[in-house]
Computed example of a mutant assay.
Amino acid sequence: MNILQALFFPPEQPGGVSSMVPYIQERFNQMDYEMELFSLPKRIRNKGNEPVSFKTFDHTPYLGNTLVDKYIQTYRDYLWWTQMRIKKKYDLIHAHHPIAAMVMKRVFPDTKLILTLHSSYERELILNKKIEAGGPEHQFLTSIYRELEVTADRILTVSHAFQTYLHHYVEDAGRIKVIHNGFDEKRFRPIAHENEVTQLISVCRLVPAKGLDVLLKACARIKEKGHPFVLHLIGDGPIRKELEAMAQSLGLYDDIIFYGYMLHPEEFMPFFDVFVLPSRAEAFGSVFAEAALCQLALVGTNVGGISEQIEHGVNGLLVPVEDDEALAEALETVIIDPDYRYQLARAASDKAKKDYSLERVIAQLKKVYREEKSK
């Protein structure tokens, strides 16, 4: 079977989908499949000029809005690149981004199209204070979900929480099935170590949606109680300077290290003790599974896919969103009790190996591909 994996970002970008699909490709190519990857290079901008229309709604009232205009132009660019670069046909196309899905169906209308929705762009924009809930950008972006419903032959998503979220925007929510992200265990090598001072680590884009301001406030509370720690922040983003200034104002300058962007943080994580990320929303939260496979204790917020990965008190700790006091208490618990921390880390690793293995994803996708091919 000949399958095209249509990404938006090129492989080797940070994030669950771009870091996962190349490993899926490798495994399928070892079997009786031919699988290729396709994505839009960053250099391709403002190349496309073909008209864009949608079957389920009229987007023209939203034109003139900067975000909408950029989205439409990106659609045109992806279309231009696809038409120029792809000269063969495939048995199936598996898209991992709304624009990739819509373009592929337009170029290959007779080819079965599977779409995996990995995250909610509009929720991230709202949490990052780029758009307003209920505003024109929000209306436009949520209208895309209905368009995708009539475009794709099958829709998948990465968590039951995100599946529930999508119910508000589609007509037949029963069509949407869940396949959690999967990870190649060979990438993760837990290392036995003894850190005299508890080492906390967080890996994410430095944007408001990740709740790092809440994390810094929680760390200030921990320091006030006299518990030593070091927080390692891996990632970059638009609020880095704001977070650095906040760390200084809270007296945390000597307790936090800002590393910036790192391509393969999983090579770094096994040397630390606790992974913490108080996100305000997560469709899945791949980095929690990656941290679990590195055998770190997990502390996260009770939202979205995080709460599906963590059973509170069993394989990690969950806290309410925006609650720096509860987050400080959770972190204090794992800082002062290394045995409990190790117990949580072992349980997290066992669950991740069982539920988020790449073998499980391969088996589930193989079943989906065969079903769609046989229709």
Rank of each mutant, 00 (worst) to 15 (best):
Y340N: 07
H118V: 05
V334F: 00
E332N: 14
E332D: 10
I201V: 15
D91P: 01
A291W: 03
G64R: 10
M84N: 14
W81H: 15
H97K: 00
H232L: 08
L293D: 03
A209L: 12
K129D: 10
L200F: 15
A152F: 12
E36D: 15
A281I: 11
S279Q: 09
I126T: 04
T116K: 05
H97L: 00
L117A: 11
E194D: 13
T151C: 13
S349D: 02
V303C: 10
M20T: 13
Y78P: 07
G174N: 11
L117M: 15
M20P: 02
F28W: 08
L7H: 10
Q163T: 01
Y75I: 02
L148G: 01
A283D: 02
G135W: 01
R85L: 13
G182F: 08
F188P: 05
G251D: 04
D91L: 04
R280Q: 11
L63F: 06
S19F: 04
A330E: 05
T116R: 06
Q163V: 05
V178L: 06
L40E: 03
C294L: 08
K55D: 04
D255F: 01
P51N: 15
P136T: 14
I201Q: 00
N46D: 09
V274W: 04
P51S: 14
Y340S: 08
F229N: 00
E137F: 13
F284S: 06
T60H: 07
D69V: 10
T66K: 15
K354L: 09
R45S: 08
I72A: 03
I155L: 07
F275K: 03
L166I: 09
F271R: 15
H232M: 11
E132N: 05
K367M: 10
E36F: 00
K130L: 03
T116C: 03
R187L: 15
Q30Y: 07
L79V: 11
C219G: 08
A209V: 13
E12F: 15
R85W: 04
T116V: 08
L127P: 02
T56W: 04
A330N: 13
S119V: 00
R189A: 11
L358D: 12
P14H: 10
E325A: 09
H138Q: 07
K241Q: 11
I126V: 14
L344S: 09
L298G: 07
E332A: 13
Q248T: 12
H94Y: 05
R85G: 01
H264W: 08
R154Y: 02
E122P: 02
A283G: 04
E244F: 01
G251K: 06
G285V: 09
A283L: 11
D337R: 10
I239A: 02
K367D: 12
G135S: 12
L318H: 09
L250F: 11
Y342W: 07
H97V: 02
Y259H: 14
G64Y: 08
K354H: 07
T111R: 06
L127K: 06
L331V: 01
L40I: 08
V299S: 07
G304Y: 11
L40Y: 04
S18W: 01
P238I: 05
A6I: 00
Q83F: 00
N195D: 03
V303Q: 02
H96V: 10
A326C: 06
E185T: 07
G235Y: 12
I114M: 12
H97N: 10
